[in-house]
Amino acid sequence: MKNILFINTGGTISSSYQEHGLTPTQSAESILAEIPELRELCHIDAYNLMSIDSTNTQPEDWATIARMVHKSLDDYDGIVIAHGTDTMAYTASALSFMLGTVHKPIVLTGSQVSILAENSDSKKNVIDSFLTACGEVTGVFVVFNGKIINGSRSSKIRTRSYNAFESINYPYIGLVENGKVNYTEGLLPSGQVNHPYNDSYCAEVFLLRLIPGTNPGIFDAIQSLGYKGIVIEGFGLGGVPFKERSLIDKIEQLMKDGTTIAVTTQCPYEGGDLTIYEVGQKVLEKGVIPGYDMTTEALVTKMMWALGQAADPAEAARIMGTNYVNEVTIPAETTHV
């Protein structure tokens, strides 16, 4: 029987109705008490690390979770983390980078409805997560509604439905059906670079979603607030306007001042490509980092992680251009080694 550590961090799964709405109140032990059949599957130790709505999650919390997981890995066969759904994809992506190359399953899960409610999705999600944590697949995953998703490819795309999470631009690692884990055949690592544990981060990263008419002065404001990195969600394949209200000069100036800037697409599926259109090539020529097919969650957390260990923009760009956990598909001619 395998040994699994269950870490509770809060979220809807552990919530009950309080004066101001749903609030995390339940402990790891009380969540497990609602699913007694888990004890037949494995030996479980429970730990209450924090109890917060994931909307309140900060980068500091990612590092706290990473340290707890890292120090526990030698003592357990797998780890399940109960987490709020709203920022779970950010945490899963951050942990994917911080924890380094892991050889055990680290599973994040949660629910759209409290563990205390009837017909909640919480019990299935927790059981599916423990089945995954007892399995042979290794890495950081989100398990939700029967889907096993690479943590750095996960994104919450629905606010209420039980099928809230999707794997973006990457196949499911597997599916959990009728109490059995079925892994995707032929799904092998592709060009990943092994990396050690490092929970350093720089929280000064700004996400800017462009709209027609974006004032170029926004970049002065961002710089004045001390941000070290910017992720820009451009149009289509990653286009950035260069005519009326051109943003190109401001981007170039910030990069000369040492700001790290990545450009991606606003479209969740199929990724960006700055080489196709003039509106992409002009910003690419200034030296921005292409986001390729990364999720916004992975791109933001990866930049925070890169800047946390690399003050030199060139080194941060090298880290950003490296595939660590199958978080990105990089064209062969631009792959960093």
Rank of each mutant, 00 (worst) to 15 (best):
A164I: 01
P331D: 03
T296H: 06
Y201V: 06
T57G: 11
G11D: 08
E333M: 10
G271V: 06
V279D: 12
L49G: 05
E297P: 00
H195C: 13
Q18G: 09
V263H: 04
V176A: 02
T64R: 15
G226P: 04
V102P: 00
L131Y: 00
T329M: 14
V142I: 13
E166P: 01
R245F: 10
E333A: 09
V279G: 00
T259Q: 04
I13D: 03
H83Q: 14
L208H: 01
P241W: 08
T101V: 09
L95E: 00
K104F: 04
L108V: 01
A262L: 08
M68T: 13
V176H: 04
S120G: 05
A298K: 10
K123V: 13
E315D: 06
A63W: 13
H103W: 13
F144D: 07
Q192I: 14
N182R: 13
T159F: 12
G186T: 03
I7T: 11
D53G: 10
Q309Y: 11
L38M: 08
E60M: 13
T264G: 11
F6K: 02
D121C: 00
Y47V: 12
G21H: 02
I261K: 00
M88G: 05
P196R: 10
I79D: 00
N119W: 10
R160L: 14
G287R: 09
S114Q: 05
D121F: 03
N215Y: 09
S246R: 10
G280N: 05
N178R: 15
S14T: 10
D273N: 15
E270M: 15
I276V: 14
Y269W: 07
Y172E: 07
G280E: 05
F219N: 06
D312A: 03
Y90A: 08
K250N: 13
D74P: 05
G135F: 15
M294L: 12
P171T: 09
V181D: 11
G110V: 02
N163T: 04
D121V: 08
Y47L: 15
K282Y: 04
M68H: 10
I251Q: 03
P105H: 04
L32R: 11
A332Y: 01
V288C: 04
Y17T: 12
I65K: 00
N198V: 05
G321W: 09
G139P: 01
S72P: 07
S96C: 07
K282S: 07
I218H: 05
V142T: 12
Y277V: 09
R39M: 11
L299P: 07
E278T: 14
I149C: 07
G135K: 13
K124M: 03
S152C: 15
P105V: 04
T87V: 01
G258T: 04
V181W: 14
I81K: 01
T64H: 11
I248L: 12
P313G: 13
L95S: 01
L210A: 08
Q26C: 06
V279Y: 09
T214S: 08
Q26H: 08
I115G: 06
F6Q: 09
A82F: 01
R209L: 15
K104H: 06
R209M: 15
K124A: 02
L99F: 11
T9R: 14
R318Y: 10
L207I: 11
N326W: 05
L284C: 01
I149N: 02
T329A: 13
V176P: 03
V231M: 15
A311P: 01
A203Y: 07
V80K: 00
M304I: 01
N326I: 13
V126C: 05
